[in-house]
Design a protein around this nucleic acid. Structure first.
Lengths: 219, 219
DNA sequence: CCGCAAAGTAGAACACGCTCTAATCCGTGT
DNA sequence: ACACGGATTAGAGCGTGTTCTACTTTGCGG
């Protein structure tokens, strides 16, 4: 409904017939040994799904349509993603990959740990909000899904990494992970409120600053 | 799947034919002038829905089944609740009322503000978890709904009330509300994780203690 | 090259949320 | 008493996620 380009689709109008033979398609959210062409197919599916979701949200991303657009039979789609939710989760995975690499490219520069965390979260917020339909769809789906998503954990580790500047995440204590994880869930909550039209960027930033200052106080 | 009684259904096997003429059926979550028999019907519907949801969760609560069990036509059900989500939200409303009054009956007694907050949250957790299927359905729906539910705010005020013992909530600063609200959203997140089988009571308690200690440190 | 299991395909079919229709019921104002 | 309008009903029907079936293609070990 809103703007016509997806954060994710970027340069991917979903090549139909003979696709270029990508080698390491960033398997991201799905391990397990696969052949090259299977990875390709998987990638095409996710791209098609993302493209569809970026306009019109989840409802525009119909399984039949995704299959068609990915040039794949419905049965095959279901072989790769046993449910629509799994597909959505995969799309989310790519989204996080993007955020992660964006952060690696241009790390936050605030002086305090808390500040850097807020920085990252606000950047993620703006990124997601570029495609409200998509963001809404993805967020809600993530929360709804029975499937265990590594979302919270990934976000927590990301936050820890930028918070404790040189900190090796492996050295983080259980409690530190808990705190980062909690900050992430507060963020998700704020995002949902924003999608409901109950928050502005400024409000979110302010609230995150307050909470982050306390949760990450001793980093 | 789990235990056979619902927190809510209590003494309500959904009277079918000639129902007793209840007078003030605790309109709770739906204002608007209605006739007596309409309120009765509405109540029967919600009860049927709750009873179904309490075993088998949302999926067991099929609109056709709810209608049948409430002794009402499908069309009528949809007249009262335009979507399944609205029905679920109504059920949630009743559940929250219960929790709130339980807390009023037996207030938390921990010495610190943070402790009392955790106390309340853990009690709510155990209450909800008595009916996991139902809790799951209700929680997710709450998060999902477009409708603005006062849930977060209600919870935040409740927490503030027990945290600052004699504190009049009206005197709370904006920032204090933010902190309480954030604690509530962390709690919701933990609940979801528990429903996914990723948390025990002990873990949740520990995590809430850590977070609460920081968020409510100066109460 | 052969055979065969795994993967893919087209499409029918099913389940369930939701909508629509035509008929009937019910209560209220005149 | 009666007519009228809104509420209710039974049931058909639609859309979309998911499953199933029968068939074909693909890739690989021997």
């Amino acid at each position: 409904m809103r703007s016509p380009h997806a954060v994710i689709e970027a340069a991917t109008p979903v090549p139909e017939g003979a696709a270029s033979v990508e080698n390491h398609p960033s398997a991201a959210t799905t391990p397990g040994a696969r052949t090259r062409s299977q990875l390709q197919r998987r990638k095409r599916i996710v791209q098609a799904a993302a493209a569809l979701a970026s306009r019109g949200g989840v409802e525009a991303m119909q399984m039949r349509t995704v299959a068609e657009r990915a040039g794949v039979a419905l049965g095959t789609l279901y072989r790769y993603f046993p449910s629509k939710m799994d597909l959505v989760v995969a799309v989310v995975g790519e989204e996080i990959d993007l955020l992660e690499s964006s952060i690696q490219r241009r790390p936050p520069s605030a002086p305090t740990a808390s500040g850097r965390a807020v920085d990252v979260l606000m950047r993620a917020t703006r990124g997601l909000m570029r495609e409200p339909e998509l963001a809404d769809a993805l967020l809600r789906s993530l929360i709804m899904t029975e499937v265990e998503t590594p979302f919270g954990d990934r976000m927590a580790r990301l936050l820890l990494r930028v918070a404790g500047e040189g900190l090796t995440v492996e050295l983080a204590t259980e409690d530190q992970l808990t705190l980062a994880n909690s900050l992430a869930s507060v963020w998700v909550h704020e995002l949902l409120e924003m999608l409901r039209g109950l928050r502005t960027y400024e409000q979110i930033q302010h609230r995150l600053e307050i909470v982050s200052a306390r949760l990450l106080m001793d980093f």
